[in-house]
Nucleic acid binder design. Structure first.
Lengths: 337, 337
DNA sequence: TTTGTGATTGACAACGTTGTCAGTTTGGAA
DNA sequence: TTCCAAACTGACAACGTTGTCAATCACAAA
């Protein structure tokens, strides 16, 4: 039975309302009273009961991040960073795994909104692929900030990277090394990144005056297995590519594995690029040339934007685009002569 | 303004208490009334307000998992599994990053207990290394289940693997391949696994009648950098090891990287073993020989045990030991002649 | 002196549940 | 028929906060 506001009030010799004012930093409390109340709070070891506060204010002080477990590999560092923000701002951050098309996920989401009254959401791809989430949050009028959303909306704030540009830079890097047959591994159709990166790849080829060879474009679903299978097929072609741009890092790991299995030396016989710069990409051998996506910053700024909205502050812009950067490591080199 | 229990009661033509009985599946409601209430619930789209329920029952229906962000790499699959259990059992699962020795972590933990009234905790190494957590939970009388705890307690339930056995099996595997100079990379001093794995390594050597060479035992802190640095030093020895047992997978990644950098072929010139079987270990080349630790099952059974405790049910045993298994992949082979 | 204004304070309702307890109904045994 | 226990039901308090509003106080201006 922890101390309540009443215990504090009794000890400080004032009303519970005055204690409440002190706790919430409201004005109209004399310095003397404030000091007395604060002393009483310390004396009885008082901590406000969050459930009561939530009930009285009809707010939950909770933010939920919808995360698709398959992709995104949320390094714990990211989660930790987000929790810190929550700590500063007095919000609790709830990490919720979410599978689109999965009915249990949907029910859980409904319960988070209707029972827990979560104050706001951050979504990550491909959780936004169907309109279910946005529609649901729309009908319940729960604020939402999206990360790399499928559809960029004028009304829903989002944080994103420039995947067209990043993919173009990767491709130009490979072109500048002398590669002419560059394969591209396409991601799932429910993520915007898949299309944007494909566009960047194609833009670079066209700008270089090269044809787009459909046999060099394969599906990987952004998975290890997808990258592996695509590579086995690609390298069996009569004239195989000299470089594979894997669409994302996880697929690239599959490409690397397949290349090793086939007995190809990386990067001498096959250059490989990824996209995303997962933590592991600098730890494998050879280091993976990729595009660093500032996932931590993205989640952080999405969360901060959401909190601003919840506090009723205006955002500078509904669209936050963060820069990505090509990271050159050991997995790319000029093609074999 | 969502529907409340009053709206349901009005529509069903009964008291709010009767609605409450129906919601909670309590007895003493006639079938006819029950049906009418349920119809009303559906009609108004009622969902109970969790904050009010928490306040009235002085319970949070929340479980918190303390996770050290550096290690453990909680694959999202694990988190997802745990959330599912929570869903089944009507508990919300809070994932809380926790750094021992980090004062903010401690304050957050205190707030989780005293403000949020979290019903129970699951700890993972090395969050339990100091006694702070156990003491705190003890004084607040909050139930706790530990995973791979530093001290195995008779009173605090825990789930663990048999690291001594696992490490012994790894070492015996290397011995059976013919290795005689096997290095061991020690983990941090605040994790039981570090000592248990060292013991398994030493037991196997002693059982084979081999001496324990202290120059072959190095610190890695279970990190990539630690594994990398230790390997550079080890391979500079006048008579370097022919195999390195890296203590955990993350350190093993560092060993592999260093070996490649030195120009050693794996496994022909150097055999490498890890421990833990992180998801990536089967995706790198060559696949890493390691010990599979059933992390998902461990977190699952710890969570289930905690929920049983919270429900007042007795545990079959306070000590749950789950089997680990040696996984042979491509990173080990007989030593060079 | 009176008046007004802003600072300070507290009584009480409200938030949406569940717990307590007393009242009513039902059905079967005496 | 009467009585009793069990089944059913609801009024109301309680949980620990915050919001509303009225009351009081202090002090300066009129």
């Amino acid at each position: 039975m922890p101390a309540t506001i009443k215990d504090v009030a009794r000890m400080a010799g004032c009303s519970i309302k005055t204690v409440s004012r002190v706790i919430n930093g409201e004005p109209y409390v004399s310095e003397e009273t404030r000091a007395r109340v604060q002393a009483a709070i310390r004396a009885v070891g008082y901590a406000p009961n969050i459930s009561a506060r939530r009930l009285a204010q009809n707010k939950s002080f909770m933010i939920c991040i919808l995360l698709y477990p398959g992709l995104l590999q949320p390094s714990s560092a990211i989660l930790s960073r987000v929790m810190d923000i929550g700590y500063e701002e007095n919000y609790d951050i709830l990490i919720q795994p979410y599978f689109p098309t999965h009915s249990r996920s949907k029910r859980k989401l409904v319960s988070l909104i209707s029972e827990q009254h979560i104050d706001g959401f951050v979504t990550t791809p491909p959780c936004d692929a169907e309109d279910f989430v946005a529609d649901l949050l729309g009908t319940y009028k729960v604020p939402l900030v999206q990360i790399n959303p499928f559809h960029r909306s004028d009304t829903i704030p989002f944080v994103a990277g420039d995947d067209v540009l990043g993919a173009r830079q990767v491709t130009e890097h490979l072109l500048s090394l002398g590669h002419r047959r560059i394969a591209f591994l396409m991601g799932p159709r429910n993520m915007r990144a898949s299309f944007d990166r494909l566009a960047g790849y194609q833009n670079a080829l066209l700008a270089a005056g090269l044809p787009i060879d459909p046999t060099l474009i394969r599906d990987s679903e952004f998975t290890f297995d997808g990258g592996y299978t695509a590579t086995r097929l690609l390298m069996d072609l009569p004239s195989p590519p000299t470089a594979i741009f894997a669409g994302n890092d996880e697929a690239a790991y599959g490409v690397i594995f397949a290349a090793h299995e086939i007995g190809l030396r990386i990067p001498d016989q096959l250059s490989i690029c990824g996209y995303d710069d997962f933590a592991m990409s600098k730890n494998i051998w050879p280091g993976l040339t990729t595009v660093h996506q500032p996932l931590e910053e993205m989640i952080e700024s999405a969360t901060r934007a959401l909190i601003r909205i919840l506090k009723g502050e205006a955002l500078d812009s509904n669209q936050i685009i963060l820069p990505s950067a090509l990271v050159l490591r050991g997995s790319t080199a000029p093609p074999p002569r």
